[in-house]
Design a protein around this nucleic acid. Structure first.
Lengths: 221, 221
DNA sequence: ACAAAAGTGTTTAGGTTACACCCATGA
DNA sequence: TCATGGGTGTAACCTAAACACTTTTGT
């Protein structure tokens, strides 16, 4: 069967992205209030249809730029959802991604034309979500937590140079539990991925050493 | 944009499955010789188009049954490949799965109508593959090796009751390195997932205790 | 009795956890 | 000088790794 055969109808293909950031000392996710049916008025994950000439990743980046105004994100494919009944309009297969944006890279949330409103929500205070988006979100959160333990994605949520305490806060917020300060520093530093700089943090108290992620080319694995 | 809007053309969606088994003390993968263009005569991963009324997983199971004659497999979604140029015929997005079949569940390989031939290949002796299938296979192998370390998928390659040595062989074949017998047994048994049975293996030498995976409902995580 | 696979413990090294106090700065 | 966050070491525990011989069976 050829993909260009006219008699065969294909499912629609969308991409959706769970966009995480850390704002107000919370893990937050970008949601969009749907302006059209189905689920008009419900909150949903940003996403949209894949164009014939763009890769899946390009499609996600385009949607993120349009709907969330997020650049310079870490992007990773999560899972593809294809249950025949997941969209009441017909067969829609969605390739879900999860994205991490550092707070400093956030512009104000601006919704695209077919979305009424875009907003950040704390994971502790989520509205009901459209379609199977809650399931997608839960999967993304699980993946984020798992990868935190054995990869370097946390750095995608931080500025170029940061104090160790801020890195620890990112871990604590995402894992939702306190970590021991000494053990955390020992472990992180023993990985040999961070480089101390001469810069020091400002603020009201003792200045902290700012660290830099060593590889200017950040490789996530 | 509605998925039923006529003016919009969708990409084709296929599913592909890397099917692993252990035969002849080797990790082998099922490949199909393509009977049609493009890549006519090349070897390819089994797969095919997703029908509008079936889930992705159902589509894979159907293809596996048609092309590989494999039942009772462990099936896990791997990754979705969607580069616009990956199929010379046009835009084809494929959702790749990897599957594990125990040797005892294998019927003879029978190719479907549009495939000339189906055959098992050792991973050490692979032909060139069509499309981006080599990339998919490499990803599947990496995933299989990674999950072996922290999950129970190995049991999907074994019969219901098996001696510990056979389990160890599965690990050694997939990881492609020898493992220490005492440490292996200690670790596996300490997980508390196996149950010794009263059965003993036959054969020319000292009979081995056969073990059973405890949860009749095998949960892979 | 021999060949072949089954089965079994101990020691060492490395990593993870638990835990409490002094330091530097701005206000 | 006080409040606040920055910064440091050690002991106990647990897990992983290295390593060799005895047992059971069929032939």
């Amino acid at each position: 069967m050829s993909p260009t055969e006219e008699s065969y109808t294909y499912p629609a293909v969308t991409v959706d992205a769970i966009v995480f950031t850390i704002r107000q000392e919370q893990l937050q996710v970008a949601l969009i209030k749907r302006g059209i049916e189905p689920f008009k008025g419900s909150w949903a994950i940003p996403g949209g249809f894949v164009r014939l000439d763009e890769s899946l990743e390009d499609a996600v980046k385009r949607e993120l730029n349009e709907e969330v105004g997020a650049d310079g994100v870490y992007l990773e494919q999560l899972y593809t959802f294809g249950e025949p009944e997941r969209d009441p309009r017909g067969r829609v297969i969605t390739v879900a991604y999860f994205a991490l944006v550092a707070a400093e890279n956030l512009r104000e949330l601006t919704a695209a034309t077919d979305a009424a409103e875009a907003q950040w929500f704390s994971l502790h205070d989520l509205p009901p979500l459209a379609f199977d988006h809650r399931q997608i979100l839960d999967l993304a959160l699980g993946r984020l937590r798992a990868k935190l333990e054995y990869s370097t994605i946390a750095y995608a949520l931080l500025p170029r140079a940061f104090p160790l305490t801020q890195l620890q806060k990112v871990y604590e917020i995402i894992l939702d539990r306190p970590l021991d300060k000494r053990n955390f520093r020992k472990k992180i530093l023993s990985l040999g991925l961070l480089e101390p700089t001469d810069e020091r943090s400002g603020g009201a108290h003792r200045p902290a050493t700012l660290y830099l992620f060593k590889n200017s080319q950040v490789t996530f694995f």
